[in-house]
Amino acid sequence: MAAAVALESLDAPLIDSHCHIVFRNFDDDLEEVAQRWRDAGVGRLLHACVEPSEIPAIRALADRFPELRYAVGVHPLDPEHWQSNTPAVLKAAALDDSRVVAIGELGLDLFRDKNLDQQLVMLRPQLDLAVELDLPVIIHCRDAAEPMLAELRERRGRGACPRGVMHCWSGTPDEMAGFLELGLFISFSGNVTFPKATDTHACAQLVPADRYLVETDCPFLAPVPRRGKRNEPAFVAAVAERVAELRGETLPAVARQSTANACALFGAGLHNV
């Protein structure tokens, strides 16, 4: 209830910087979901992409909901969707629609699979594409901070490290410091509301004010008290409220700062919210 009251005084819209409303579990009630995110003060959504076949459907969602911007990319756990022409497909999609504001979600995930070499084969061309197109990247990194930092540091050494965001942050403060040193932003999702997520709590307290975003990663990781249920963009307000609590700030202040940070990272495509 506190979040609902606080939302009445928001003087800046929230941005859900990472969502997946293209998934089938939104098919039956997406208009109602949209009304709820608008009622919650969400002025922009950034839709991530996990594999190229999603792109036409995500683009159709952007046509349907003018507040939506999107990324194009291949998730590290989807190697079956990577083909020799995939970089060209992603490039064409990015160049064809100004609402594409990022490449991703891309990254490394060694929690479930240990195929690091195969994941690097997908990761590196996407990072190259982001540099070529001067777009930020949305990075998925789970149990893979060390190889991800090594890859990005090597790229920085030769001037080929794109700007971007570590999405759905769940790492340690030390790992966060490494990514911040590379110029990356840190995005907090519903897991920041989980009582036992102590590392994530510490990161939310320590991250510089101009380097954090908020997101849902819906339909995954619904925040407390909706944990275990379908997540949706409106619930980014609960994420922002928890970040505010951890930082000793007000919800309107976090809304203003996280929105300004998202606009700084993703550019003109998120302005005028």
Rank of each mutant, 00 (worst) to 15 (best):
L127A: 11
H201D: 00
A34V: 14
R242Q: 15
T259S: 14
L152N: 05
P136Q: 03
E51A: 13
Y212C: 07
L14S: 01
L14A: 02
I15P: 08
V131N: 10
A34S: 15
L10C: 01
L10A: 05
L10G: 05
S53Y: 12
E32M: 07
L95D: 06
Q119T: 02
C168T: 00
T193R: 09
L270T: 12
V42E: 06
M176P: 01
V273N: 05
Q83G: 13
E146G: 07
L127F: 10
L68I: 15
E232I: 10
I15H: 11
A244K: 06
G104S: 11
A202P: 02
L7K: 09
Q257Y: 03
R230Y: 15
R153F: 06
A177C: 07
R24Y: 09
V243L: 13
V243I: 03
C161V: 04
V5A: 14
G157S: 11
K114N: 15
F235W: 14
P195T: 01
E8Y: 01
L265N: 04
A262F: 12
N191Y: 00
P233D: 08
A262M: 10
L135T: 06
T172H: 08
E154S: 15
T198E: 13
L246E: 02
A234L: 11
A264C: 04
P173R: 08
I55W: 09
E51M: 12
F65V: 12
M1K: 10
L251K: 07
S170Q: 07
G43A: 06
L270M: 14
R64K: 15
R24P: 12
T250H: 07
V273L: 14
E51D: 14
A204D: 08
I186K: 02
V121H: 11
I103P: 08
E105H: 04
T172D: 02
C161R: 14
P162R: 13
A237H: 03
C49R: 11
P195I: 02
A237Y: 05
D78C: 14
D11Q: 06
A234H: 09
G267R: 11
D39T: 08
R124C: 08
P219Y: 00
P76C: 05
P208T: 12
C161H: 02
S189P: 00
Q83L: 12
A262S: 15
A204H: 06
L77V: 06
F188M: 03
R211D: 06
P13V: 03
A102M: 10
I139R: 00
Q35Y: 02
W169P: 00
A145R: 02
G178H: 07
L30M: 07
V165N: 06
A34P: 05
A92H: 10
